[in-house]
């Protein structure tokens, strides 16, 4: 059976403060990367799927469990 992969990118909504991102940006500044004016930290969830998998189902999974719509956005990338 051929496997499919999906990548779900979960990011904090732009209106939500991201202390982790702020710390990362500051650390990069300290290392001399002064062009860094900000950073946002998110996560990628890679799903290994059977060949019947559809984007719609993955989006459903993301909405239900993988992301919290109160604070996070998500995008889905399907890979055949």
């Amino acid at each position: 059976m051929k496997l499919k992969k999906a990548r779900v990118y979960v990011t904090l909504k732009p209106t939500v403060l991201d202390p982790q991102g702020t710390t990362v940006a500051k650390a990069l500044n300290h290392l001399g990367y002064h062009e860094v004016e900000g950073a946002r930290v998110g996560k990628i969830i890679e799903l290994h799927l059977s060949d019947q998998a559809t984007r719609a189902r993955v989006e459903e999974m993301a909405g239900k469990l993988l992301a919290n719509p109160v604070i996070e956005n998500f995008t889905v990338e399907m890979e055949e």
Binding site: P19, Q20, V70, I71
Partner: peptide, 10 residues
């Protein structure tokens, strides 16, 4: 209502 974020101090 609402959600929890990591503490500001991490």
């Amino acid at each position: 209502p609402g959600a929890m974020l990591q503490n500001k101090s991490l």
